[in-house]
Write a protein that binds this DNA or RNA. Structure first.
Lengths: 308, 308
DNA sequence: ATGCTCACGTGGTCAA
DNA sequence: TTGACCACGTGAGCAT
């Protein structure tokens, strides 16, 4: 292998060799590159067609393959170079061996670098195609990847606008007008007359009649309303691990049968909104009883979270 | 400037001049490059800030401008090159002129190409930053541009889900009849490509590769989609006592952290729609794994309900 | 021919 | 050191 001869015929340019290599490897052996690589890329393409339909993010096998192919082609090219220069070099062999190992390692790193970079590009394109797939056609006329994310911008704006509109319409249906402007904490606007509230400025509820609540502090915002044997519960609290599990378990043991449940998490605040059926053998039947029981339950859950 | 001397000390390689030039120009003479080009790029930047702020998808004006600027800067460079060639070459003058013109033009095109490409990259980054700016913080922890569009995928899904929910709620409020194009069973329209389905007419998925699913029958309609470590789960099943409790418990023990959960009950059919975060120590990471685990979990829950 | 887009290989840089 | 990310310049392909 005359590889080393080429590399060290001039010690001056430590880097330019790499460039010459890439030059010749990139230009003269073009068909070589497109042979060794095109197989790979077409395989990838096929793979993506099979997997991509179902969105499986398996990136590792292809990258390994790419590395192998890259090594194969590169060594071949370098051999070609070596023959031409072998006649001109007269260096001792020791240095050649040491430096050869060095070069090998550098080549190795280089190939992994190439593979990694290729992977990165591929993942990006996968994401782009996914993003494109879940947008309506009109937002992405040009398949251009800049246009895709441009269309995503518009689409997100549109969706947000849509959500805003719908929630506004829903809000205006409930006639909860006006008081949403100064709500600093999330979900605060969901509570009209909470039995328990963590907010200090407990306005709009001047004399809360839930005297039972005063014996223990509020662990969360809790609002309970009831019609016949159906109750609507709204709970806003800090999130904690397994909170939902314990809450559901507690309600279950309280003989409150969950019909609808909606939990929404924003940052570390979570809002539970549920409608439950008060079973016949349930011990707590009034709104205040339920609210108190909920407050105790959430207090226990919080304590649990503290300990763990 | 010793740059050109290096470039033309060998006439052998017709292309390598370009490469060596770009090498030295790109690496060693960093400040040089940033002298001649930076005027241009900064002008472009200003211009794009004016246009880009308004979201005008006009790629042509900027490109034209880039071309002009590229001409100016490139001619400068080429002049420098020409001087260097005069001293070392001994060719007749006619050819020199022709080739010089040729070289000039090629250099010209090259510079415009560079400028265009640079513009393209810049525009892409602008789009990315815009897209990032209008997403909540939690969707884009890592400022990575792959993560940005990954987060955008999640965000779009979440928004779409939200819209679907709101419109569905509005619809169901106005009319409770199941006239949605012949869907006999409720919630059937929520499933696009379920991994498990209780419906016999499993059309539109001719050869689903999830062979693991066939080993056991579907206990419910289950659809899992995933992006990064966020998964969206849709489950439709028959209602049974404490089903939700067991489901939440099961997900908890599977290290699937529930971010959003929505359960809706109609008659004896219940639809769970939840978005979960796949924790780092989770054993099931692929969509099929999760779907299979869900199917098993629901099967166990159903068996439990049978016995009690 | 020209413009535009993309994939590629590469060097620089920042953090673990 | 290593790995991840990014910007860069460059050649190819595909449209106008």
């Amino acid at each position: 292998m005359g590889l080393e001869a080429v590399v060290f015929q001039q010690d001056l340019f430590n880097y330019s060799n790499r460039y010459l290599y890439s030059l010749l490897g990139g230009n003269s052996s073009y068909e070589d590159k497109h042979f060794s690589h095109h197989n790979q890329t077409s395989d990838e393409a096929n793979n993506d067609f099979v997997n991509g339909g179902y969105w499986v993010s398996s990136s590792s096998p292809t990258s390994v393959e790419a590395t192998n192919n890259g090594n194969g082609s590169s060594s071949c090219v370098v051999d070609g170079l070596a023959v031409a220069v072998e006649t001109t070099s007269t260096r001792p062999k020791r240095r050649r061996l040491r430096t050869r190992k060095n070069k090998e390692e550098i080549e190795n790193q280089r190939m992994t670098h190439i593979a990694v970079e290729r992977n990165r590009r591929r993942q990006m394109n996968e994401y782009l195609s996914v993003l494109r797939s879940l947008m309506p056609e009109s937002y992405v006329q040009r398949g251009d990847q800049a246009s895709i994310i441009g269309g995503a911008i518009n689409f997100v704006k549109e969706l947000e606008h849509c959500v805003q509109l719908l929630t506004a319409k829903k809000e205006v249906k409930e006639r909860s007008d006006g008081s949403t402007s100064g709500c600093s904490s999330p979900f605060a606007e969901f509570f009209m007359f909470p039995q328990y509230s963590t907010r200090g400025d407990n306005n709009s509820i001047p004399v809360n009649e839930s005297m039972a609540a005063e014996t223990q502090p509020a662990t969360a915002d809790i609002e309970v309303t009831m019609v016949e044997n159906h109750a609507n519960l709204k709970i806003r609290s800090k999130n904690s691990p397994a909170q939902l599990l314990k809450l559901v378990s507690g309600l279950n043991s309280m003989r409150l049968n969950i019909l609808h449940l909606n939990v929404t998490t924003v940052d570390h605040t979570v809002l539970y909104s549920l409608s439950v059926q008060v079973e016949d053998d349930c011990k707590v039947t009034s709104v205040d009883d339920i609210a108190t029981a909920l407050n105790q339950l959430l207090g226990r859950i919080q304590e649990d979270a503290m300990l763990n």
